[in-house]
Deep mutational scan, measured.
Amino acid sequence: SSGGSSILDRAVIEHNLLSASKLYNNITFEELGALLEIPAAKAEKIASQMITEGRMNGFIDQIDGIVHFETR
Rank of each mutant, 00 (worst) to 15 (best):
T28N: 05
I7F: 13
L8N: 12
E30M: 09
I63A: 11
A47R: 00
G58C: 03
L36G: 00
A34E: 09
A47N: 00
A34Q: 11
I51K: 01
G3E: 12
F59L: 07
K45N: 10
A40T: 08
M56W: 04
D64L: 15
S21R: 03
Q62F: 15
L23Y: 10
R55N: 05
G65E: 06
N57L: 09
G33P: 01
T52S: 14
F69H: 01
T28C: 03
F59V: 08
R55W: 06
A34L: 13
G4R: 02
S2T: 12
R72S: 14
G58R: 01
L8V: 12
K22I: 08
E53C: 06
S21V: 08
I13L: 12
L32G: 00
G54I: 03
M50A: 03
L32M: 03
E14G: 02
E70Q: 11
N57R: 09
A41G: 09
S21T: 06
A43D: 00
N26L: 13
T52G: 09
G54H: 07
K22H: 09
Y24M: 07
E31Q: 09
L8C: 06
Q62C: 06
R10Q: 15
F29V: 06
I60S: 01
F59T: 08
M50V: 02
D64K: 15
V12D: 09
A40Y: 05
E70R: 10
G58E: 02
E30P: 05
I51C: 03
L35I: 11
S1R: 02
L36E: 00
L35K: 03
A43Y: 02
I13W: 06
S1M: 10
E44L: 15
G3W: 07
E44K: 10
G4K: 05
K42E: 15
N16G: 10
L35N: 02
I7M: 13
D61V: 06
I27L: 14
Q49F: 05
G58M: 03
G58K: 00
E30W: 08
A43M: 05
A47E: 00
R55K: 10
I38H: 01
R55V: 08
E14H: 04
A34P: 02
F69C: 03
F29Y: 03
S21G: 07
S1K: 04
M56I: 15
T28H: 03
D9M: 06
G65C: 04
L8Q: 10
I38M: 06
I66Q: 06
I51P: 00
D61S: 09
E31T: 06
S21F: 05
D9S: 06
L35Y: 09
R55Q: 07
A20D: 01
A43F: 03
I66D: 02
I60M: 04
H15Y: 13
G4E: 15
E30N: 08
G4I: 10
L23K: 12
H15A: 15
D64S: 15
T71D: 12
T52R: 09
I38K: 00
M50L: 12
D61T: 06
L35P: 00
T71E: 11
L8E: 11
N25P: 10
I63H: 10
K45T: 12
A43K: 00
G33H: 02
L36N: 01
I7Y: 13
I51S: 01
T71P: 12
A47T: 10
E30K: 10
I60E: 00
H15K: 14
R72D: 13
S48F: 11
I13D: 03
I60A: 02
I60R: 00
I66N: 05
I46V: 08
N26G: 05
N57T: 08
N25W: 08
S1I: 12
R72Y: 13
Y24V: 06
M56D: 01
E30V: 12
F59R: 12
N25D: 11
S6E: 11
E70Y: 14
E31V: 07
E14V: 06
L23F: 09
A11Y: 10
I60D: 01
G33Q: 03
P39F: 04
M50P: 00
E53Q: 08
A40Q: 06
D64H: 15
L17P: 00
A34F: 11
S2D: 14
N57S: 08
L8K: 11
E31I: 06
N57P: 11
S6R: 03
H68V: 09
S21W: 04
N16T: 09
M50C: 03
M56V: 11
A20I: 15
V12F: 08
S2L: 13
G3I: 13
